[in-house]
Nucleic acid binder design. Structure first.
Ligand code: MN
Ligand code: MN
Ligand code: MN
Ligand code: MN
Lengths: 152, 152
DNA sequence: GCCAAAAGTTAGACAAGGCTAACAATCTGC
DNA sequence: GCAGATTGTTAGCCTTGTCTAACTTTTGGC
């Protein structure tokens, strides 16, 4: 590491500190948003494999409400990021990593959904809101949601 | 509206119907995501005007945790969309529409935050999660959150 | 087994939202 | 009232995520 690098670090450090808690929250939200699509895709792919035996792009496109080329490009990124494997003109498979993420996402989705329904929301709206909320729920919040959903 | 437009609408309609409830939910989330940034900006701008007397790009950048050029470009879009007005090298003002949106967002943010705290979450995590969740909460869910937060 | 329909891919456009580098304007302390 | 610091803008790059148009491959009905 050069002196210049060290200077940079020392120069940047106070600014990172100066950015208040607010900036941190916004940065966290931006990070969460970057993973949203991948999370929804692997969750859906796992579900299709479970229900249909395989995950075909055409079904992903229908369920996600996007066109086939959009799915193709997104699957390219997921493959690049090590979440899926695929061969040309064949259906999609999850990697070990992809399966782990899918499981985690399904779990989160389930808890948020049950929580909202338990709160008194109708199932359709609950499903709708859960699809967005699930990506912005911390471990702590998830635990509280689960406790509420499971209370007697 | 031209015949071509009508044809397009009629052609698209059945597909929108064919997409099941799931696709609708995902589409709704995508719409919500498109408005997230604008919502956070106008909310922050309103707050800066209230607390500091004016909303300066440098403060927006600090609070949002992004660089000045990013703020400049985003403000350009907000102005284009009729939410703010601005003059070169001057601070930013909300339009009537921007003020209305800011008020609505502040209200939503407040309810989600109070709800999470009431659930038992620590204020820092609550603030963090609220910043993301607020954009994915339907009117119905918001009402339930408010009722829960206000329960005796 | 062929051939049309369905599914998948590729190419290319476009907008959003992030960045750095470079420059311009404004403000401030002396 | 000027110089230097701060603030703001512009230009240009990159990635993501969406689309349409055009193509190729696979599949299934006959
Ligand atoms: Mn989701
Ligand atoms: Mn989900
Ligand atoms: Mn927010
Ligand atoms: Mn907010």
């Amino acid at each position: 590491m050069t002196n210049v690098d060290l200077q940079k670090i020392n120069a940047v450090e106070p600014e990172a500190r100066a950015g208040d808690a607010r900036a941190e929250a916004f940065q966290g939200v931006r990070v969460a948003r970057r993973n949203e699509l991948a999370e929804d895709y692997v969750e859906l792919i796992a579900e299709l494999i479970h229900n249909q035996g395989e995950a075909r792009p055409v079904d992903i496109a229908t369920k996600m409400g996007v066109t086939a080329p959009t799915v193709a490009k997104t699957l390219g990124r997921l493959a690049r990021d090590g979440l899926i494997t695929r061969a040309k003109y064949r259906s999609v498979f999850l990697t070990e990593e992809g399966r782990a993420l899918a499981k985690e996402c399904r779990h989160r989705h389930e808890i948020v959904l049950r929580f909202l329904i338990r709160l008194g929301l109708d199932p359709e709206t609950a499903e709708h809101d859960a699809e967005g909320i699930e990506h912005h729920v911390s471990e702590r919040t998830l635990a509280l949601f689960a406790a509420f959903a499971n209370r007697s």
